[in-house]
């Protein structure tokens, strides 16, 4: 019988690796060349004072001075950051919750559903670019009927001023927030339609109400999509051109006093804070586990523990065996010496 293996050990894995790299290669080249390399470069710039001269760039290494300058002497950035943080932390849950509600409504069986869906997806094509810019310029995005100052006064009585201010700003930009939620609605709708309907039927058989179904079936199933939407919303809100901080960074870059190095430092700080927000939301959403996940995790932990124990025992056994073998050898040698 020919027992010879055709593939050497490790070769299959290598082949798998190669296929993976092949698929990822075109994207990877673009990413490294036009995204990662410039990002690294901009970090380097952020440690310098840069002046753009006709004959090229003049760099002066200053270490982290740009960063300390942002914190210590520049009021614009810190203030902008404060309002950005508060606004994002309030607006993101509002957008996500709103789009989930809309998606659930659109998932019902109603007449004219196709029409409604189309209307609610429309913001996808207007939420960025010049259209939004013009709407903002014209102040068409605020609700004229709503008396914002009254709400603000009311909130001011019960809440600290900073918080009240950001809540009112969310209220006055309500329509803008609605317009931002096109993609989120789409993603939620896709997720909702993928939920197995037999789950709901089984729950109904067992006497579960719709409310229970929502909390115990719908929400856990679409949890990854909620995270996706939160991340998308944070990124979209922070990186679009209407964001005050982006405008500030852009202006600083072109201004005589700031310069490119300083703007790079700002951009780095901004990105770090943005990541912090995303991580905060991710922990909030994915950190909370339901009973089954917790049980599964516990089981896995125990399994791992057992395996570790097994390995320990096996190792100990091997060690013993080895030392035993050594002893035996010694004895044999002694004996052979003696006999000699």
């Amino acid at each position: 019988m020919n027992n010879k293996r055709k593939t050497k050990p490790g070769q299959l894995e290598k082949r798998e690796n190669a296929v993976g790299y092949l698929f990822i290669l075109p994207w990877l080249i673009g990413l490294v060349l036009l995204v990662l390399w410039p990002i690294v470069q901009s970090f380097q710039y952020s440690l310098n004072k840069i002046k753009l001269l006709p004959q090229g760039m003049a760099k002066l290494y200053v270490g982290f001075e740009n960063y300390s300058q942002i914190f210590l002497t520049d009021p614009d950035f810190i203030m902008g950051l404060e309002s950005y943080l508060l606004e994002t932390l309030i607006a993101v849950p509002v957008i996500v919750a709103f789009s989930l509600i809309i998606a659930m409504l659109l998932n019902q069986k109603i007449s004219c559903r196709g029409f409604f869906r189309m209307i609610f997806f429309l913001p996808i094509i207007i939420a960025s670019g010049p259209v939004m810019q013009q709407l903002a310029d014209q102040e068409a995005a605020s609700i004229p009927m709503m008396n914002v100052t009254m709400i603000e006064q009311l909130l001011d009585e019960y809440l600290p001023h900073v918080l009240a201010e950001s809540i009112t700003s969310v209220f006055s930009n309500m329509i803008t927030l609605l317009w931002y939620s096109g993609v989120q609605i789409l993603i939620f709708l896709a997720a909702l339609q993928k939920i197995d309907t037999s789950l709901y039927e089984a729950a109904k058989m067992d006497g579960g109400s719709k409310w229970e179904c929502f909390w115990k079936i719908t929400l856990p199933t679409i949890k990854p999509m909620i995270l996706l939407n939160v991340v998308y919303t944070v990124i979209f809100m922070s990186n679009n051109e209407q964001n005050a901080l982006i405008v500030l960074i852009y202006d600083t870059m072109l201004s005589a006093t700031g310069g490119y190095g300083y703007a790079s430092a700002m951009a780095w700080l901004y990105s770090i804070i943005e990541s912090a927000i995303v991580i905060f939301f991710a922990v909030l959403i994915m950190g909370r586990k339901d009973v089954y996940e917790r049980r599964a995790k516990k089981y896995q932990r125990e399994l791992r523990k057992e395996k570790r124990l097994e390995r320990k025992i096996r190792k100990r056994g091997e060690r013993h065996e080895r030392s035993y073998a050594k002893q035996k050898e010694k004895q044999q040698r002694k004996q052979s010496k003696k006999s000699a």
């Binding site: 798998e16 690796n17 190669a18 296929v19 993976g20 790299y21 698929f23 990822i24 990877l28 990413l31 036009l34 995204v35 990662l36 390399w37 410039p38 990002i39 470069q41 901009s42 710039y45 991340v231 990124i235 922070s238 990186n239 982006i246 960074i249 852009y250 870059m253 490119y260 703007a263 790079s264 700002m266 951009a267 780095w268 901004y270 990105s271 943005e274 990541s275 995303v278």
Partner: peptide
Amino acid sequence: LRFKGKYALLEINNTALMFVSVAVMIPR
């Protein structure tokens, strides 16, 4: 697919997402 460095690449992509595109204008 399974290949080496997959998770690292994913993390890199997710971090790149956060970066402000205005700031990479000049290096680009």
